[in-house]
Design a protein around this nucleic acid. Structure first.
Lengths: 173, 173
DNA sequence: CAAAACTTTCAATAAATATTGAAAGTTTAA
DNA sequence: TTAAACTTTCAATATTTATTGAAAGTTTTG
């Protein structure tokens, strides 16, 4: 596909659908990814009913996934004067988005690993000395790597406000 | 738990089980994570039957997930002179592991996003000018972010052989 | 070549996860 | 206070993903 012309609505629809299926491959639910894509596509907030309408999901599903997006700090609630219902707006700054996703993933995916490894590090093993050594080396190496990973994720959130850093990373990678 | 004493076998078992459940939270199957943990725990390779025995999984499951681990370049086959069956050994260097995981995730999770965004970047939209502008800004921002991400993942694989880089990252993050 | 020793495949099944929608809960306005 | 407007919950259901195990396939050995 070299050139392509389409209605904006169609483009948004395509983006939303594609983002939804991509979502699965990063371990978040399709609906959540779709709703996020939808809210990102609109500068203004949408109501629950509008979301239901646009992505064809049930009320319960929209409610659950919007709440989850709020937990991830990717979306916030807004109320409009004179309107009774709530509106949901995505955070539109990509670097803030990235930062919040990083933080959440750290919490969910890195922290538990760290806990496991600390626990194993703190235990003394009985058995064959060589095998113990191998196992302990593994645990230590993994622990080192995990903190490396955390540093790097921290770095990612710093890139945010730092063009110099951005250039540096590009240069050394 | 401040001090703890246990048999090595028990420690390995604990590690394997925990790694399995963590696996789900990073979007890989429990069995695959368990098998990986098992093979990491042993310096020498194990046969399919030994894996089945140790992690209590069916032959088919072991076969499938070992193949997957080989695709990810986290495990390789080994044959032993005079033995008919195959043995599977984990790569034991944590940084090589990290590097291979990064590459695989890039391929699976980043590449498809890049493709989608390029496609949307290449299309011309019809509709309200302000809305189009918002949507295009979104697409461009996401595309920028994705390449940023790729740079950083590249950087991660470089840390491997570079202690200086490691210190630098720690310093700036 | 045939049987033994393995490995691979894949349809059936189980388990985990996501989604629905109707009922219950809450807030606001008159 | 009560009815309307809206949000939340959650048991039932659907969908997706992982796992099993027996049958088919392959390679090696005698």
């Amino acid at each position: 596909m070299y050139i392509c012309l389409m209605k904006l609505e169609e483009g948004r629809g395509k983006f939303i659908q594609a983002w939804g299926s991509l979502g699965s491959s990063w371990g978040i639910s399709k609906s959540m990814a779709q709703i996020h894509a939808l809210l990102l596509s609109f500068p203004e907030g949408l109501s629950a009913d509008e979301i239901m309408e646009q992505v064809q999901l049930s009320r319960g599903n929209v409610n659950t996934n919007v709440r989850e997006l709020i937990n991830w700090r990717l979306v916030r609630k807004e109320t409009v004067l004179g309107e009774r219902k709530e509106f949901f707006v995505a955070l539109h700054d990509v670097h803030t988005i990235a930062q919040n996703i990083m933080e959440e993933r750290k919490r969910r995916e890195i922290e538990p690993v760290r806990r496991l490894l600390s626990e194993l590090k703190a235990t003394t093993f009985e058995g064959d000395a060589t095998e113990i050594k191998h196992f302990q080396t593994l645990i230590n190496d993994l622990a080192d790597f995990v903190s490396q990973m955390e540093n790097l994720m921290g770095l990612m959130t710093k890139i945010n406000s730092n063009t110099y850093l951005k250039k540096m990373i590009k240069a050394i990678s």
